[in-house]
Design a protein around this nucleic acid. Sequence first.
DNA 1: TCCAGCTAGACAGAGAAGCTGTCTAATGTT
DNA 2: AACATTAGACAGCTTCTCTGTCTAGCTGGA
Lengths: 146, 146
Amino acid sequence: MSDPAPLNTGVLLFLPYRAMEARVFAGLAERGFDDLTPAQARVFQRIADRGSRVTELAEQAGITKQTAGFLVDQLERAGYVERVPDPDDGRARLVRITERGARSVAASAGIVAEVEAEWTAHLGVRRMDQLRQILADLREITDPWR
Amino acid sequence: MSDPAPLNTGVLLFLPYRAMEARVFAGLAERGFDDLTPAQARVFQRIADRGSRVTELAEQAGITKQTAGFLVDQLERAGYVERVPDPDDGRARLVRITERGARSVAASAGIVAEVEAEWTAHLGVRRMDQLRQILADLREITDPWR
DNA sequence: TCCAGCTAGACAGAGAAGCTGTCTAATGTT
DNA sequence: AACATTAGACAGCTTCTCTGTCTAGCTGGA
């Protein structure tokens, strides 16, 4: 996290990540999803098809239950998710993606595909594949949640 | 930023970045630099040898001048940087790294090297080289500041 | 069966990090 | 000399995150 000349690998990873995130948010805003924040998206992204509990989302996103609850509140107010009682546990409630939420998921998938296509055009198919392969491999020793 | 099964390239980049950052901060804290926050580090990292202006730092870090000034205040209070008048411009002041700041830079460089060595051990020298090469190449279309 | 302990998640309060807007002093440009 | 621009400070606000505390509901052992 220090030297300027040969940029360290951490920074090198961060730059394209940031670029991707910025593109996705700009694209979502254009398509009418202009009320999503990055923090909300990080939680939203992890909601399972059958719905997820706030506690599960917190663990997977690496934040506290309180923070996750706060972000889910906002997502709920904006109409991206809804909370329903968990039939299996009276204490718990399931967070589920709404109609509007599903549309935003589809939109963001499209934007991601678009950016990835640009990267592939710049790098070439072979090197883009290598990149994904190597990153997937690196994940084994850098992803705390599997 | 959406599908769960084949993780998108953005998330794939983020995971090792986050791991690197966490390691550097943990390592710095162990070595007595426990009062640095990620946001401060992001600014600190960009200070040139001869000193930098707050406005320059803000641009390069992608934050506003106000936020940069706020973070430099904190770094100054913690003894990592000092502000001196800019001899070339009476309005400006140069932010420079102090003795303590320089020691933290050296420490973080060591930790980064250590993590990179682990990654190389996992991936192999050839693939680690490929990774850095591809990321450097990708930087051409994803780094807004050059 | 019932109580002890655990879990889900809400509420309160605080701090960090970012923003916009406004202001001043100094510099540059006609 | 007048005007526009720039550096950076101050004020006030929002967002995101934390710790701590609380209640309601679940669960397992005596």
